[in-house]
Simulated assay, not measured.
Amino acid sequence: MQPVTCKITSIEKLNTFLYRVFLQPVEPVSFKAGQYVSIVMGENDKRHFSIANAPTGNQIELHIGATPDNNYAMQVIEKMQNEGVVDAEIGNGVAYLRENSKRPIILVAGGTGFSYVKSLLEQIVDLQLENPVYLYWGVKEYSHFYFADEACGWANDHKNIHFHPVIELPEAQWQGHQGYVHQAVLNEFKDLSAFDIYVVGRFEMAKIAREDFVKQGALIEHIYGDAFAFI
């Protein structure tokens, strides 16, 4: 895929480790909801980040989790801040939304993987799809739900969308799901054979989730996640 030069139109720090970035490609591009961009850092160095918006408009939204000890992401943020432009391959990945499927949908996101499901959800809403959608977003602590209001808003505004926040290490007063995010799905659905399941998160989480979902009836051809290409 030929890289496209993108201007950095905005970099906003959402919390201590997360940056919301908007890219403006200098030429028209196309992608599907759920695909990712590859930022070109060198001849053999491309850094991958989920696209956080539906394929409407003319900008690309990214949510980049970056701390000083995370060179993979922090070097990208520094390049964007210092140079104001990047070259990017736009529209990589095969875990895009199956828009013609009539199956109910489970979205499983860990941490900043929410950016991936945000793209899917925006497209589901834009297309007015009526599939039941169950969003499970897992984080380590409550403060990491950086887009909780938006997720709750989708659930409140659309009767087919259901939001289930999951906290791995909750405070004592937390009344919702706790533990690993994929385990919350297993606890809620004893038979996963009817679902399209989209998974995003750390590779080890994605691997375990897929294995456990299949044990509970999920069809492997209906489990989507770009992490699976690397594990």
Rank of each mutant, 00 (worst) to 15 (best):
N58Q: 12
Y198P: 00
M205T: 05
V29P: 10
H164A: 15
F49E: 11
Q24C: 14
V86A: 08
I208V: 14
S10C: 12
M205R: 04
P104V: 09
V214W: 02
A194G: 04
N156T: 05
K190S: 08
M80L: 10
I161H: 03
A109K: 01
I105P: 06
K79W: 10
T67A: 10
L97Q: 09
G57T: 04
D87F: 12
G111P: 15
C152L: 14
L135R: 06
T9Y: 03
L120N: 04
G84M: 10
F114P: 08
F203L: 08
Y72I: 02
I231K: 07
A88V: 15
I90T: 13
I8E: 04
A52V: 01
V214D: 01
S119I: 06
L62W: 14
W137R: 10
N131P: 13
V200E: 15
V26W: 13
Q2S: 13
A109L: 08
Y136T: 03
A73Y: 08
M80W: 11
E43C: 09
V200T: 15
I197S: 07
L219P: 02
K207T: 06
K215G: 11
D196Y: 02
R20C: 13
Q183D: 02
D149K: 11
A184E: 07
L120I: 09
Q175M: 03
V37Q: 13
H177G: 01
Q59P: 00
V21I: 14
H222L: 09
V199Q: 11
F195Y: 14
I60N: 12
Y136P: 09
G65S: 14
D126G: 00
G110M: 06
T5R: 13
Y96F: 15
E78D: 14
A172H: 10
R20H: 09
D157M: 15
V200K: 12
D87W: 07
L14S: 01
D157I: 04
V85I: 12
P28T: 01
G84C: 10
K7H: 06
Y19M: 09
I8F: 11
C6N: 05
